[in-house]
Design a protein around this nucleic acid. Structure first.
Lengths: 191, 191
DNA sequence: GTCTATATCGGGATAGAC
DNA sequence: GTCTATCCCGATATAGAC
């Protein structure tokens, strides 16, 4: 792996662990083993490196979300994505950025975060719409809203798990969301 | 208001706005108008001031949550608390702390955060249990889980709203949660 | 209790040789 | 492209007078 690539990967990891504001160029150097001059050759500022690292972290989320639109019946895809293995105590590498004041204050840093959530939201909406159309969910439910609710169950689950330093609240939050979805099957549906 | 009180209040505000790690004693001094010596007389370190400010912010959340256990029918209390006016773009002054690496790494700073969420969770559980017992929610729903799901809808809603720089995702997330709760009324219930 | 002055350190970046 | 040396500033705290 070349230096540039290694720098981005290291910065991405650190931003997931500590956010942007609290990550220093020094840490990136030390963890990656890349020298000072080399680093500032590739990235003239911390912000430039941060943008590259953030774009990578945002891109990392998309393949899994595209499963929401894959084969299989809609509710099964929804359940699979909702319950896919996740490390609750590490949190979401994208969601975390919304609590970093330096990221939120900088439109260039915030842009990939907004874009990633928008794209995931669209995947959710399409899957939920399909579930309604196929009769797996009640027709009076709004897929747009529900998409945000389910995304929020995950993002908020991380918050609760980290506060408790225990994955249980995360697992309970998403399991409860699934319970509600199932309870929202149309009356009389066999499944 | 005395100096000590003013320092805590100022630090609380700054921690809500910017978190702990990214808030400097200098900002607290400048915003509060309290001098250097005075500040270090009352609080020997940033951390001491942070603990006091965080405890205040955590305490601020509890009165509203206690409404979950007030008068009125359970589902109405749940709805009132879920939909109470909240400034989505400011986020939660307690939930934000879970994304601050310096808070999470320090058990003394994290403790009031965990405790606050635990207490709010217990209020949610009691309200949801009452709703199940009074027949407003299906008996096969687990109040413990559901409590985390609803708390997460709020906490995650903030994340989505801040990412979008728009309160709409927050409003949609909680409205969708309420839709699901209503869809989870026992079959045949008149209300 | 409050003030001003001073100290130390790390974050972030630049300079210029190789 | 990479290295080492250096610079500047703000974060955090200490010192000691009033």
């Amino acid at each position: 792996m070349d230096s540039r690539e290694l720098l981005v990967e290291t910065m991405s990891d650190l931003m997931w662990e500590r956010g942007y504001a609290d990550t220093s160029p020094r840490e990136v150097r030390e963890r990656s083993g890349i020298g000072q001059g080399s680093m500032y050759h590739h990235f003239p500022s911390k912000r430039d490196l941060g943008v590259a690292a953030l774009e990578r972290n945002c891109a990392d989320l998309l393949p899994a979300a595209s499963e929401l639109e894959g084969p299989g019946d809609p509710l099964a895809r929804i359940e699979a994505y909702l319950m896919r293995p996740r490390d609750a105590l590490r949190g979401c590498k994208v969601g975390r950025m919304t609590q970093d004041p330096q990221v939120v204050a900088d439109p260039v840093l915030l842009a990939p975060v907004s874009a990633a959530f928008e794209q995931i939201h669209r995947s959710w909406v399409r899957a939920l719409t399909a579930a309604v159309e196929s009769g797996q969910l009640r027709a009076d439910l709004d897929p747009e809203r529900l998409a945000y609710t389910l995304m929020a169950s995950l993002q908020g689950g991380y918050v609760l798990a980290i506060a408790a330093q225990d994955p249980a609240p995360f697992e309970a939050a998403r399991a409860g969301a699934l319970d509600l979805l199932r309870a929202a099957a149309p009356a009389g549906a066999t499944r």
